[in-house]
């Protein structure tokens, strides 16, 4: 961590809020992101069409609550309002179809862990959606994806300030410098100058 200054490449996430000026709403969420979507659905509903694309995770599956909320509480047509997917590949395929049919004015929301948020951005970019066009909420985990600048491997779900690269096994300092294109923080070998001199490894991204 760079204590003395703020690195402006590090994204700061807020909570999801409806963008009331819109033609339609597309919400993409995974795992614990489902809870963020439920929170959003508790806000006053906009009049335009709403579509939720959801990828449950083993430890975090909010599909039932989403179904109840959308269908039973809000009275929406479930077939058009919710599409639940078992694999990431299926989710991206469905998102591609939805965005292909979408018009300008379709508001896009994403909720999930940080890596997921930027996968959504990469998929949407194929349709000319800019990073700034998407509203994001980082749900639950602060885990980081870490790009090893030496071997170019991305290690996922890193909870510590220093992590072992899953590609080259080097000990990487997880910097605050973030690439939206890669959806990952920069990892730099920490003991290059003095091999073996690795500071305490601390869990700071639970």
């Amino acid at each position: 961590m760079q204590a003395g200054y703020w690195i402006r490449s590090k994204p700061i996430y807020g909570g999801l809020q409806w963008q009331h000026k819109a033609q339609a709403h597309v919400i993409i969420a995974s795992g614990e992101g489902g809870r963020a979507v439920l929170r959003l659905l508790q806000q006053q509903l906009p009049p335009q069409a709403i579509k939720v694309l959801y990828l449950p995770e083993a430890q975090a599956d909010h599909s039932h609550a989403l179904r109840h909320m959308l269908q039973d509480v809000l009275g929406l047509d479930l077939a058009s309002a919710l599409s639940r997917h078992d694999t990431a590949a299926a989710l991206w395929l469905a998102l591609d179809e939805v965005l292909t049919a979408s018009r300008m004015g379709t508001r896009i929301y994403a909720a999930g862990d940080e890596a997921f948020l930027w996968q959504v951005a990469a998929q949407a970019a194929l349709h000319g959606v800019l990073n700034a066009d998407i509203m994001r909420e980082q749900a639950a985990s602060l885990a980081r994806a870490v790009y090893c600048v030496h071997c170019k491997t991305i290690s996922h779900h890193v909870n510590t300030n220093i992590a072992t690269c899953s590609g080259c096994q080097r000990q990487l300092l997880v910097r605050d410098h973030f690439s939206r294109r890669l959806g990952a923080y920069m990892g730099l070998m920490i003991d290059a100058e003095e091999p073996g001199n690795v500071p305490d490894i601390l869990e700071i991204y639970p």
Partner: peptide
Amino acid sequence: QPLGTHVYTCGPEGMVQALLQSADELG
């Protein structure tokens, strides 16, 4: 307009303002 469209306008102020307003209202 499909997703990923950009719009450009140049003309009388009334027209430009109408376009900016419509774009804003449509999201």
